[in-house]
Computed example of a mutant assay.
Amino acid sequence: MLAFIFFFTILFIFALANVYIYKRLITRISFFKYLYNFFKYFFILLYISQAFFFLLRKEDFLTDKVYEILALSFAPSYCFFFITLFLDFIKFICIFSGKNYSIPYRFLRIIFEIFILVLGGFLTYISINNALKIPNVKKEQIYIDNLKQDLKIAMLTDIHLGKNLHKDFLEKLIIKTNALNPDLIVIVGDLVDTNVEHLKDYIGILNEFKSKFGTFYVLGNHEYYHNVNEVLQLLNENTNMHILLNKNIDLGVINIAGIGDLMGLRQGVYGPDLDKVQKDLSKNKPSILLSHQPKTVLLYNVNDFDLILSGHTHAGQIFPFGVIVKLNQGFLHGLYHLNEKTKLYVSSGAGFWGPSLRVFAPSEIVLLELKGKR
């Protein structure tokens, strides 16, 4: 029911946005005078594509190419909406202050209108590219009590392998991560976002991740949406990753632990069990906990851990949705100090969910440089 309300709200917002752009921008561009009907049907088609995406995105009959095209349809509406809103705001300020906001010369007006269209196209491209590109590396230095040697952890979250991001994206992500020469690699949930049948041909390339201690993985909420048992079977049979499902591993210099996602509580399978993790946790060395949703730290006592690594938020992914994410999760992105000992890092993620769109929320590969306090 909540999902239905969410999708209906999004589609209603985009319907209003498309009408607003047409009425307040397109019909006021002078050299579009004889193209108004064309743009009317263009925005109708654009909205149909947006509606089809949300209504049919889970259906297998959508090919990857069709899915990718539909996912691109949101960016023009988003970018041109904010441009139109900004122009209307400037007009309001001019009217309120008694100044004339119209451009007196037709030539200058046409130049300005062309600039607005080019700007909208450029912002549309940038917002799409921010979602689809291989993430940049973000380095974060963290000091940990009692850490006997420095460690480099490559952190990936929210890769969302599926109809939009698949083999080519994963291969490039692996190459860029390996180039960091990490001591260990962690994948903190939402690796899988499609039926496992679509991943069988290439999921094994996860074994190409290279690090001293190996690759460690925990479930995210999206794995539960695609039959969590089949996801676990796929990864167990085709990869050598260490799957931390309510367990911990002593690596000598640190403990690395992971818990099931909070979605498991809703579905009644593989929910988080922190007591089980802590039962045999070696307390004489630093401990790291992998937990997909950061709000886990607000629901459970995590004081036994020095560092918690989470994702899920996408740093909001699309402005201004970060406000809603922050309200829901309690955290958005970056490093948080929970107490004198325990720290939390929330990654914006390497991939994206839904529309091919990232605005003011860049994706990232995180290189955590852990150092002992001196």
Rank of each mutant, 00 (worst) to 15 (best):
I90L: 15
K91A: 14
I93C: 13
C94I: 07
I95P: 09
S97G: 05
S97H: 07
K99A: 08
K99F: 00
N100Q: 14
N100K: 14
P104T: 03
F107C: 12
L108Q: 08
R109Y: 09
I110L: 13
I110F: 08
I111K: 15
E113D: 13
I114G: 11
I114D: 02
I116G: 12
I116K: 11
L117Y: 02
G120H: 10
G120Q: 07
G120L: 08
G120T: 09
G121Y: 11
S127P: 11
S127R: 08
I128W: 09
I128N: 11
N130T: 06
A131N: 05
P135W: 04
V137C: 12
Q141A: 14
Y143C: 14
Y143S: 15
Y143Q: 14
D145L: 12
N146C: 12
K148A: 12
D150F: 04
L151A: 06
T157S: 15
T157N: 06
T157A: 10
I159R: 05
I159L: 08
L161S: 04
G162E: 02
K163M: 07
N164R: 06
K167T: 04
D168H: 08
F169G: 05
K172S: 04
K172D: 01
I174T: 00
I174Y: 04
K176S: 03
T177Q: 00
L180S: 01
L184S: 03
I187D: 00
L191E: 00
V192T: 01
N195W: 00
E197M: 07
E197Y: 11
D201V: 04
G204M: 03
N207V: 03
N207T: 03
E208Q: 14
E208M: 10
K210L: 10
K210N: 14
F213T: 10
F213K: 13
F216N: 04
Y217K: 04
V218F: 07
L219H: 06
L219I: 10
G220M: 06
N221K: 07
H222D: 06
E223V: 02
Y224T: 02
Y224M: 03
Y225P: 02
Y225D: 12
N229P: 00
V231C: 06
Q233S: 14
L234W: 11
